[in-house]
Design a protein around this nucleic acid. Structure first.
Ligand SMILES: [Mn+2]
Ligand SMILES: [Mn+2]
Ligand SMILES: [Mn+2]
Ligand SMILES: [Mn+2]
Lengths: 141, 141
DNA sequence: ATGCTAACATAGCTTGTGCTATAAGAAGTG
DNA sequence: CACTTCTTATAGCACAAGCTATGTTAGCAT
């Protein structure tokens, strides 16, 4: 009935790791989207979109900068480094695939958007590829 | 291009809420499984299965007990209250549906198991129902 | 050029989730 | 019944992510 304990633990460890990455991915994806859509990503806008307070964003950006994912020009918003850009691009693509997939399955658009926001971070490469194929075949509508 | 800011924020808030519930759900589901499979759920076994240290489990169990989800008989393991049982039952069913769905999609069993461990917590009722239907139609194998 | 306002920074607090080290106690075994 | 061992409890630490309150300062408008 129950799977082997070590295998079990490995699965949970993996899920916890994904959980730690969720926030980072959401930030990068959002920053990339904000820049693409309006030319800049200010802390206040990031905060408003994420639904958190501005100091929360400030702290996170500091961490992302330390990790070499973003750079900040004071009072000019935040920008993605090359590495940040790469991660953002992958995150956005993945998000888009998951959302299209849910739509192709017949899920309501609003629900699809919200579920995709969480699911995207827990989808392996293999599953993502399967989602992509399915979405392509059963074209949205 | 970008969705309305308030709608956006609402989606993220929802995802954060789900994230806070993830751990609780995993604990309850695991406790239920351990009891079903071996008659008891000890801290050490929970810890081994989750891949965390025993004091981490002890602390979490205290919280779950305060929240009325589990009860502890000293040195006899932990048990689910009625409410805990209900939540566990739903979590397990959901997990099972998500995993079957991934299998029906043609995902490798190991990958399906691991992805399901994360995805399960971010699936709305609507999406879960769609997964269930799909899995039923495209019977596993 | 001055002044206002909006954006950002900083301090200090809370809560959740993890850890190690160590004490204490139940339970099974001889 | 004593002893050993396995299980649980507790203390103390770290770090991530959130918050409010409050200072600073750049940019823009007058
Ligand atoms: Mn997301
Ligand atoms: Mn996303
Ligand atoms: Mn899980
Ligand atoms: Mn599960």
């Amino acid at each position: 009935m129950l799977v082997d304990a070590d295998v079990h633990a490995h699965g949970f460890r993996q899920a916890r790791k994904a959980r730690r990455l969720e926030l980072v991915e959401d930030y990068l994806e959002l920053i990339s989207d904000l820049i693409a859509s309006g030319g800049e990503a200010r802390q206040v806008d990031i905060a408003a979109r994420l639904g958190v307070a501005q100091p929360t964003v400030a702290k996170m950006l500091k961490r992302l900068a330390e990790d070499g994912l973003v750079s900040q020009k004071p009072y000019r918003g935040v920008f993605l480094t090359e590495r940040g850009e790469e991660l953002a691009k992958y995150a956005r693509k993945r998000h888009q695939i998951v959302e299209s997939f849910l739509l192709a399955l017949g899920i309501e658009p609003e629900t699809a958007r919200r579920d995709a926001e969480g699911i995207e971070h827990h989808v392996s490469r293999e599953t993502l590829e399967a989602f992509r194929r399915f979405a392509k075949k059963n074209k949205a509508r």
